[in-house]
Amino acid sequence: MPRQQQAATRPPRRRSYDQFCAAARSLDSVGDRWTLLIVRELLAGPRRYTDLHADLPGVSTDVLASRLKDMEHNGLATRRRLPPPAAASVYELTERGRGLLPVLSALAEWGAPALDERRPTDAVRAHWFALPLLRVLDGTTHAGVVEVRLDEGEFHVRAGGGTPEAGRGAGDDAADAGGGARESPVGAAVYGDGPAAHADARIALDVEACLALGRGELTLAEAVRNGRAEVTGDGPLAAELRGE
Rank of each mutant, 00 (worst) to 15 (best):
residue 216 G to V: 12
residue 213 L to T: 02
residue 229 A to D: 00
residue 238 A to F: 01
residue 242 R to S: 02
residue 212 A to Q: 10
residue 202 R to D: 10
residue 217 E to W: 10
residue 211 L to T: 14
residue 206 D to Y: 08
residue 239 A to H: 14
residue 204 A to M: 15
residue 227 G to L: 06
residue 222 E to G: 06
residue 207 V to H: 05
residue 219 T to A: 00
residue 209 A to S: 12
residue 228 R to E: 15
residue 238 A to T: 09
residue 237 L to V: 01
residue 224 V to R: 05
residue 221 A to E: 14
residue 222 E to W: 03
residue 215 R to I: 12
residue 229 A to V: 05
residue 238 A to Q: 03
residue 218 L to I: 11
residue 221 A to Q: 11
residue 222 E to Y: 07
residue 238 A to V: 01
residue 225 R to K: 13
residue 227 G to K: 13
residue 242 R to C: 09
residue 201 A to C: 01
residue 227 G to D: 14
residue 209 A to C: 12
residue 207 V to I: 10
residue 206 D to K: 01
residue 207 V to C: 09
residue 215 R to Y: 08
residue 240 E to N: 11
residue 230 E to A: 15
residue 230 E to V: 15
residue 221 A to W: 02
residue 211 L to Y: 13
residue 236 P to A: 08
residue 219 T to K: 04
residue 219 T to V: 05
residue 237 L to G: 04
residue 204 A to D: 12
residue 208 E to R: 13
residue 202 R to I: 13
residue 235 G to M: 00
residue 211 L to Q: 14
residue 203 I to N: 12
residue 203 I to G: 14
residue 232 T to C: 01
residue 227 G to C: 09
residue 223 A to H: 01
residue 234 D to L: 10
residue 217 E to C: 03
residue 219 T to N: 10
residue 238 A to M: 05
residue 238 A to K: 02
residue 205 L to T: 02
residue 237 L to F: 05
residue 233 G to Y: 03
residue 218 L to N: 06
residue 209 A to V: 08
residue 217 E to I: 06
residue 227 G to F: 03
residue 214 G to C: 07
residue 230 E to R: 15
residue 223 A to T: 02
residue 218 L to F: 05
residue 235 G to P: 02
residue 229 A to H: 03
residue 241 L to N: 02
residue 237 L to H: 08
residue 236 P to M: 15
residue 202 R to H: 07
residue 238 A to N: 04
residue 237 L to N: 04
residue 210 C to N: 04
residue 231 V to S: 04
residue 242 R to V: 11
residue 218 L to T: 13
residue 221 A to P: 06
residue 218 L to Y: 06
residue 235 G to Y: 10
residue 204 A to E: 15
residue 228 R to D: 07
residue 234 D to V: 01
residue 231 V to M: 05
residue 218 L to E: 02
residue 214 G to K: 02
residue 223 A to D: 13
residue 209 A to H: 09
residue 210 C to S: 08
residue 230 E to F: 14
residue 203 I to Q: 11
residue 214 G to Y: 00
residue 218 L to G: 03
residue 237 L to C: 04
residue 202 R to G: 12
residue 206 D to H: 09
residue 237 L to I: 00
residue 224 V to L: 03
residue 242 R to D: 10
residue 227 G to T: 03
residue 204 A to I: 14
residue 239 A to I: 06
residue 236 P to F: 05
residue 232 T to G: 09
residue 201 A to W: 00
residue 226 N to F: 00
residue 242 R to M: 06
residue 210 C to Y: 04
residue 229 A to Y: 00
residue 234 D to P: 01
residue 232 T to I: 08
residue 232 T to Y: 10
residue 207 V to W: 03
